[in-house]
């Protein structure tokens, strides 16, 4: 059984009476331990796909099964619990809380899952160790470089030991060298057995993953054509 099973998932938005099919009948399986990239130009629906995979949003129709749990009709409360325990997010803009230091940011998911303070501290330090950020634990996000912030964010995504990690343009705000080190980190994590989904518009970045899925106009393109995806921009 696959870790994630999407069956005929559609997401329809209504914008001023106009119907927008952000996802159109998408079916997809992600196996445990995979390192997969979802690629597509902006507006193609890849972000919507990630939001549904990441339990941030629910589909209009179709079924989503994550780690054996059907989530398409879960309540917001249940979705929050699933996000908390089974999913880690890494964002383009790092999304660390500016008023908390790195350690507190990493502890945040565990606070919501009710981990006792001592345990929280131990696990947060271990996660920071894993991304080589333990020496910056007491720094504020604003005192860190972009790459360091992103590594802190990755530590936060790892800390509750999730089944799957979603990274939405994780290198989009970094220079190419730093971006490369972040990708290295993802590769290492995947080698340690983590399931990672990388969402990007950049074919070069997508090239690092063994499996690539291209989204175009809300559908999965039959054959991923990296060159084409890189050139094509939607009007």
């Amino acid at each position: 059984m696959a870790l994630v099973e999407l069956r005929n998932v559609s997401k329809i938005y209504h914008l001023g009476g106009e119907e927008i099919r952000a996802l159109d009948n998408v079916s997809l399986d992600i196996e445990e331990g995979e390192f997969i990239s979802i690629i597509g130009p902006s507006g193609s629906g890849k972000s919507t796909l990630m939001h549904i995979l990441g339990c941030l949003d629910t589909p209009t129709s179709g079924t989503v099964k994550l780690d054996g749990i059907m989530i398409q009709d879960a309540s917001p409360r249940e979705l929050a619990a699933i996000r908390n325990r089974k999913i880690g997010f890494v964002f383009q803009f790092f999304n660390l809380l500016p008023k908390l230091n790195v350690l507190q940011n990493v502890e945040l998911p565990m606070i919501y899952s009710g981990v006792p303070a001592r345990e929280r501290h131990r696990r947060a330090m271990a996660a920071l160790e894993a991304v080589d950020m333990a020496n910056r634990a007491k720094h504020r996000p604003s005192q860190l470089s972009g790459g360091q912030q992103q590594r802190a964010a990755i530590a936060r995504a790892l800390v509750n030991n999730p089944r799957i990690i979603f990274a939405d343009e994780p290198t989009g705000n970094l220079d190419s060298h730093t971006g490369e080190t972040i990708l290295q980190l993802f590769r290492r994590l995947n080698a340690e057995g983590r399931t990672i989904v990388l969402v990007t518009h950049d074919p070069e970045i997508a090239a690092v993953t063994p499996r690539r899925i291209e989204i175009r106009d809300g559908r999965i393109a039959p054959k991923p054509d990296l060159r084409l995806a890189g050139l094509q921009t939607r009007q």
């Binding site: 409360r77 929050a80 809380l97 919501y112």
Partner: peptide, 11 residues
């Protein structure tokens, strides 16, 4: 939004 993404419930 960040808090909700990492698992904060509405409550």
């Amino acid at each position: 939004g960040i808090c909700k993404a990492v698992g904060a419930t509405g409550f």
